[in-house]
């Protein structure tokens, strides 16, 4: 298979997805630019999280899930037969809604991905752990408790640890599924700042329930409704002059 090209973004054409009989995504075409933050918004059950998960094939884990379409990420057809899912997921990292640190030490959490990819030398691992924690701006909080269980951290710290853990795999793209919905406003602010810093090196796609969050951080925003991509534009354009009635209704709070 081809290597992921960091200079290319994400291109999806004709994406359809079914859970059993239920069609959850309908004919989605989308181009996501590299080194930008793209936000997916829409009411619950509109398919935004589902679409996010097709981008690193986490939907493979769902039973009776059938996917159609062409997904090109970094120049690689990710659903091609010879595509290695694990290598895809290394390149397309993911942060979940609820922080999910492993029940191990902070250090072992961060070192998980590098170890998966064959790095065993202690000095190398030390370097990666420090670098990843610094990139997630949580090094100062955690440098003295690297050996402590990650489950003892606060919710905000846990989520930043999970971001650091994903960064340790050196992904080119980071998918974030409502990463701040379980957090307090201060932690949320920290994570938003972090995303703005990270976008100089990474492509970030974030699903959010919070429209203010999208306006604060996203370069582009996509509005999903009932499994369809209704509107996709520069964030400012989408929120100030929406073209579709449904988008307008949603952002003005008339439903959802």
């Amino acid at each position: 298979m081809k290597e992921f090209d960091t200079e290319l973004g994400i291109s999806v054409t004709g994406c359809n997805l079914w859970y059993g009989e239920l069609q959850a995504l309908k004919n989605i075409d989308m181009e996501i630019a590299e080194r930008e933050i793209t936000a997916f918004i829409g009411p619950s059950g509109c398919g935004k999280s589902t679409f996010l998960k097709t981008l690193n094939r986490m939907n493979d884990l769902v039973e009776n899930c059938r996917i159609e379409g062409r997904f090109i990420i970094g120049g690689v057809d990710i659903y091609a037969k010879d595509t290695d899912v694990n290598l895809l997921r290394k390149n397309v990292g993911m942060v979940f809604q609820k922080p999910n640190p492993f029940p191990m030490s902070v250090y072992d959490n961060i070192a998980f991905a590098p170890r998966t990819f064959g790095i065993k030398k202690r000095s190398e691992l030390d370097e990666i752990v420090e670098k990843s924690l610094r990139r997630a701006s949580i090094w100062d909080d955690l440098k003295d408790r690297l050996k402590k269980s990650a489950l003892g951290l606060s919710g905000g710290q846990q989520q930043r640890l999970c971001i650091a853990r994903a960064l340790a795999a050196e992904p080119k793209i980071l998918l974030m599924d409502e990463p701040t919905s379980a957090l307090d406003p201060i932690s949320t602010g920290k994570i938003e700042d972090l995303m703005s810093e990270l976008k100089t090196e990474l492509t970030i796609v974030i699903v959010t329930h919070n429209m203010q969050q999208a306006t604060r951080i996203a370069d582009k925003t996509a509005f999903f409704y009932l499994g369809e991509l209704i509107e996709y534009a520069e964030t400012e354009t989408l929120f100030t002059t929406p073209k579709d009635r449904r988008t307008e209704n949603y952002i003005t709070g008339r439903f959802g």
Binding site: N56, M58, L61, N86, L87, L88, R89, K90, N91, G93, M94, F96, K98, N100, P101, F102, P103, F112, A113, T116, F117, C162, R165, A166, A169
Partner: peptide
């Protein structure tokens, strides 16, 4: 064992 642990590991590229 919560599924979120398994998802977390798989999402990091672990087999």
């Amino acid at each position: 064992v919560p599924d979120s642990y398994r998802e977390g590991a798989l999402a990091l590229g672990a087999s």
